[in-house]
Design a protein around this nucleic acid. Structure first.
Lengths: 210, 210
DNA sequence: TAGATTGTTAATCGATTAACAATC
DNA sequence: TAGATTGTTAATCGATTAACAATC
């Protein structure tokens, strides 16, 4: 509600640790030291320790951490051991890609239905997920107590669609439209900014060439 | 090459300013004050001024900034007034979504060809972009002096594909696979982390409920 | 015990915010 | 001129890094 006790940068690093640790586990490695993780992932070793401590991981001096324990702790901390049901609005190419993208359920969210205002899209399934007409959103979201929404509509429709979603009880919105949404302060918005990410890449490229 | 002179957070905010300013311009507004932008975008007004100064924008006391000047300055600063040619590898659903996504050219990159190792996909077009067999990547990338690559293959194939791309002259890699790539230090990697973004959203949601 | 590794407390660094001077 | 807004210099704050104590 107020300032989150966990620093955002820590939260950003944990999934990387998780991904690396999963690889170790798949390779059958049982133990790992913070120093080794730091080395491979390009993070300061003290940072790794702090982050792991935040996630509630305890290691043992001399032997390090058990890979399985780390994975379990991070999973629990990020709530990746359970999942919330989510509704997606905007079954265009980006929405379709997300519906087909494997692993969201493992990452805490399960997309249980998609919506689109194009009647031609409604009634089909994309992957395993049914696509419904947008009119059904409000009623279903309320009945199913959905609190997570994913917004993949064109920029021009983003604000109005977000308003509809919030009015239907959505409290957390994953926004893929390149628009700053104006929503009540109790709604949590996470913007996935494709253009920003691309801009960063290109800017760093031109900085490095000069 | 060394530390970029422009703070990353500034670079992240500039596209948001740009998007907001475009809206103002479309609405026919000619001038805007930093304080007003700060208010609407939820950024401290001093921050807005600092960011705009970084991007080379000059305003006039009392009257503020001209919207058109701000847009032009940010465009130039982010290199959004020109574009680099880019190759995309991995024409799955995510790759397809990017190929159909409007506006990358405006944001500095034009995807001129896509590649996939599935022969069934080669030979078609997705949107306006031809899809070619992966074997052709190296030769074409070198001949066309492509330096920007977009990686949308499954995680298991990401490292090997990235190696191939770098060996063919790619110097900047926009990576959508949830994998930490191990590449030569001269290669610039920008990871677009879907799972991390989702994790942040869900974590903030659970923090706010408790 | 000695050595390695953890976890914590202190110092540094960079970004944000506050205070203020400049100017149209 | 007075007022509004800019741009800059100083203070704060938080994250990162460094130093060190704890422990298996």
């Amino acid at each position: 509600m107020t300032t989150p006790s966990v620093p955002i940068p820590t939260l950003r690093r944990l999934p990387r640790y998780y991904q690396y640790l999963s690889g170790l586990r798949a390779a059958g490695q049982e133990r790992v030291s913070a120093a080794h993780m730091a080395e491979v992932l390009g993070v300061h070793h003290t940072q790794v320790r702090k982050d792991l401590t935040m996630a509630g991981c305890l290691g043992r001096p001399k032997t390090g951490h058990r890979v399985a324990d780390l994975i379990a702790a991070i999973e629990g901390f990020l709530h990746w051991d359970s999942h919330s049901d989510a509704f997606l609005v905007g079954a265009g190419s980006l929405g379709t890609a997300l519906l087909k993208y494997p692993g969201f359920e493992k990452a805490g969210a399960r997309i249980v239905a998609a919506f689109d205002n194009d009647p031609a899209k409604a009634g089909h399934r994309i992957g395993d997920t049914p696509v419904l007409p947008l009119e059904k959103f409000a009623n279903l979201a309320e009945r199913m107590h959905i609190s997570v929404g994913i917004l993949t509509v064109p920029p021009a429709a983003a604000q109005a669609t977000a308003d509809l979603m919030v009015a239907s009880g959505i409290r957390a919105l994953w926004n893929f439209a390149p628009v700053t949404l104006d929503l009540p302060s109790h709604v949590i918005v996470e913007n996935l900014e494709l253009f920003t990410s691309l801009a960063l890449l290109l800017r760093r490229l031109s900085d490095s060439s000069s």
